[in-house]
């Protein structure tokens, strides 16, 4: 059994729950819902979302929505191992908490663990290009600080296609050696 995790981290309202439900919709066949690795239920009360995509009988991707605030870092511990990707959601229109983002990247160190990292900007369907360029500069400055080369993408968690494209991106980054 090959089991990998996608950690989806972001502040309240960023779109974690919605994104995981959109990603679950792309399941072409039924999941074996109650798997032994399912830690979902127990943690929903503290705000963790859980979903799962079965790729074949012997491989699956777990989807974990985790709050971005540092006081939830005990939940970060849960998803730290066997990471396939780290997706950081940033809600456009709210001043991102860069101190938090900094701590998060220090904790996960995707650049040292060679984990594919993507920043997804949500709630941006009505934003102007100039505003998005400015936000992009801010986020890229943090990534640069962590010597991390990662994309800042515009996503809509409510949209299935947009949600799926994130899986494509992370897979492209992970596979860019072999293809």
């Amino acid at each position: 059994m090959v089991y990998r995790k996608l950690a989806i981290i972001g502040e309240v309202g960023a779109g974690k729950t919605r994104l995981i439900s959109s990603m679950s919709e792309i399941q072409p066949f039924e999941t074996e819902a109650e798997s032994s690795i399912d830690i979902g239920k127990k943690y929903t009360t503290v705000g963790i979302d859980y979903g799962r995509i079965s790729l074949s009988e012997d491989s699956a991707l777990g989807l974990y929505g985790v709050p971005g605030q540092e006081r939830y870092s005990f939940l970060w511990e849960l998803v730290k191992e066997s990471l396939w990707g780290l997706l950081v959601l940033v809600k456009y229109g709210e001043e991102p908490n860069y101190q938090n983002l900094n701590k998060l990247l220090t904790f996960f160190e995707p650049q040292n663990k060679e984990v594919a990292c993507v920043v997804g900007v949500t709630h941006c369907e009505n934003a102007s290009d100039q505003d998005l360029t400015a936000l992009n500069s801010e986020i890229q400055a943090i990534l640069e600080h962590h010597k991390l080369v990662a994309p800042v993408l515009y996503v809509d968690p409510r949209n299935k296609e947009s949600a799926t494209s994130l899986l494509h991106v992370i897979n492209s980054i992970n596979g860019s050696f072999s293809a």
Partner: peptide
Amino acid sequence: LVVPTGLSQLVR
């Protein structure tokens, strides 16, 4: 941390 915080608001 060196981040151009609030850049989008500044530009707007």
